[in-house]
């Protein structure tokens, strides 16, 4: 994950090389990702729908894969991911900003270390431990997901802000902008691409980890997977895995779109 922070620089270099002038223009790899992923997701989902409606399934399998419960779990999964991501950003970005201000700069390694440990802990263990502490349910799952996803956003916020050319900060101060203005109008816009790439990483982590929420009654597509495993029905397991993978691809794509949308013009 160390490459997360450097990726935008590499992209910038690539942009430089192709000699493009303005706006978020894309190289071939980005174009393929941008248009290819939705295509794969659509094709994959259509294939799944056809398979679900035409394949001969035994009664257990049919009962495990009713369309309405697939839709409900899919929605739960998306809600888990989205709410988790929002709370993650709301916590991690301000924390990252605070940890790059002169007063708290020295605390940054400690906080990043703690966040690192949070991510290193096995997700399933974290979820179950929290459930014992807070009880079962959606919000406990959210707490676990946020703990898990905070690190990339936090770290990229810190790295992104630290990477802003200090002479630009001084230029801002030198022409009479307050600290807050410099942060809002210069540092944050310039750090945004790096922060957004952290958000994208967090989204991918969240969509995968959300599959574990079902163990503490948090909902999501993990339920389908769990059913398949308990009943030892391969078609159900594969169906659930395929759905989770398609959703993960879609979320990853969304993260990429967000990255492009939030990339300030001119850099």
């Amino acid at each position: 994950m160390a490459d997360v922070a450097t990726a935008p620089n590499a992209q910038a270099d690539a942009r430089e090389r192709t000699g493009r002038k303005r706006g978020p223009k894309l190289d071939a790899e980005q174009l393929i990702e941008l248009f290819g992923i939705p295509l794969i997701v659509v094709v994959g989902f259509v294939a799944f729908a056809i398979w679900r409606n035409t394949a001969t399934l035994d009664s257990v399998e049919t009962n495990a894969l009713p369309w309405n419960s697939i839709w409900i779990q899919l929605r739960e999964h998306v809600v888990l991911t989205a709410v988790g991501a929002m709370i993650t950003v709301v916590i991690a970005v301000p924390l990252g900003i605070a940890l790059t201000r002169p007063g708290l700069k020295r605390a940054a390694p400690v906080v990043v270390g703690v966040a690192n440990a949070g991510q290193a802990a096995p997700a399933i263990g974290l979820i179950v431990l929290l459930a014992i502490w807070f009880g079962f349910g959606f919000w406990t799952a959210i707490v676990a997901l946020v703990l898990y996803a905070v690190l990339p956003v936090l770290r990229n916020t810190i790295v992104g802000l630290q990477a802003v050319d200090p002479t630009l900060v001084e230029a801002g101060r030198g022409i009479g902008m307050s600290n807050l203005m410099v942060l809002r109008r210069i540092e944050l816009p310039l750090a945004l691409p790096v922060i957004m790439s952290g958000v994208r990483t967090a989204l991918v982590l969240l969509v995968g980890t959300a599959a574990l929420a079902t163990f503490i009654n948090g909902g999501g597509l993990g339920g389908l997977l769990n059913t398949g495993i308990t009943l030892f029905r391969f078609p159900v397991i594969v169906a659930a895995a395929v759905l989770i993978a398609l959703l993960a691809l879609l979320i990853e794509w969304l993260g990429q779109v967000l990255e492009l949308v939030f990339r300030p013009k001119g850099i």
């Binding site: 050319d165 001084e170 230029a171 013009k265 001119g266």
Partner: peptide, 19 residues
């Protein structure tokens, strides 16, 4: 801050804000 708004400041390379 107010003082600096009345004093021009020019730095090496221009230090323009790229965004």
């Amino acid at each position: 801050d107010e003082l600096r708004r009345t004093i021009g400041y020019v730095i090496q390379g221009g230090s323009l804000f790229p965004h």
